[in-house]
Simulated scan of single mutants.
Amino acid sequence: MELQGIHVPLVTPFAADGSLATDALDRLARQCLEAGAAGLVALGTTGEPGTLTAEERRTVVETAARACREHGARLTVGVPGADTRQTAASLAALDGVADTALVLVPPFVRAGEAGVLAHFTELAAGSPVPLIVYHVPYRTGQPLGAGVLRRLLALDGVAGMKLSTGAVDQDAVELLADGPAGVLAGDDVLLSPLLALGAAGGILASAHLATERFVELADAWRKGDLDHARALGHRLVRLSAAAFAEPNPSVVKGVLHAQGRIPTPGVRLPLLPAGEQAVGRALALAGEF
């Protein structure tokens, strides 16, 4: 199954007592897939995985997996990436559970390009599922040039890359000029320009709010419907910017709650709920679609 299209990194809905709202998670997963998403990401950053118990994490994965199976969609599961041995153990637990694993470039340690390449070479060789390399240097502190990005994508066992550099920079342009398969936009506001350069799709928190339109945008760029793609991309970027006006996923959760799709807008500390003004603006923009 080729890695392409729009993938929604699911939020984790909470009930009024702070517990996991499993029924709401199930409904949300199915809504996104019925709207055309190619897959779901469970336990991505948007899902607040660091605040979940082991039991809650299992429930999130099982719920998303069931929805993906029934819709013939891809399930990607996020795994921690700071330590190679621990990451390998997390990957082993995904055998028979997920289609791909989203693995962060090792954060904070700044292992260097050679260390990052060695890390993913070892993981890919032993993983029961293909990897999606998550490159987000403004979180990890580890920049990577186009050369090592190419080598990562060329590894056996690597299905693609979530590219979240915060800019359409020279390395991104050089990488996409090679036409590699499986590069997904990870910065929501940069989806349209990266699709124009050849990205295969995106992993986008704001796609919770207008899934069909994000799918439509990816299809338009793929089909070469340039005028429509540009116009729709300009509209969607306003929604994406509003969705990230406060730390993710607080605004997205606020809008989903206002729409009646999840029972509360609650997030777990250290995150705080989004302010009324930020939620109101994103809700109004979502209503335009």
Rank of each mutant, 00 (worst) to 15 (best):
L10K: 00
D17M: 02
L20D: 04
T22C: 01
L33N: 07
G39K: 01
V41A: 10
L43Y: 00
P49E: 12
E55F: 01
E55L: 03
R58C: 10
V60T: 05
T63D: 13
R66W: 07
C68W: 08
R69A: 10
H71A: 14
H71R: 15
R74A: 10
V79Y: 10
V79L: 02
A82L: 13
T84N: 03
A89D: 13
A93R: 14
V97L: 15
L102N: 00
V105L: 07
V105M: 08
G112Y: 06
A114E: 15
L117G: 00
T121R: 11
A124H: 04
P130A: 01
H135E: 10
Y138S: 14
Y138V: 12
G141W: 06
G141N: 10
A146W: 07
A159T: 02
K162M: 05
L163R: 03
L163I: 04
S164N: 09
T165A: 08
T165N: 05
V173D: 01
P180W: 05
V183K: 01
P193Q: 11
A199Q: 11
A199D: 08
A200K: 08
G201M: 02
I203W: 11
A205W: 08
A210D: 06
E212V: 03
L217W: 09
L217T: 07
D225P: 12
L226P: 00
H228S: 15
R230Q: 14
G233A: 15
H234Y: 13
R235M: 14
V237G: 12
V237M: 15
R238T: 07
A241N: 08
A242R: 03
E246W: 09
S250N: 03
V251M: 11
T264A: 01
P265I: 01
V267H: 04
R268V: 03
L271Y: 04
P273C: 02
A278T: 13
A286N: 05
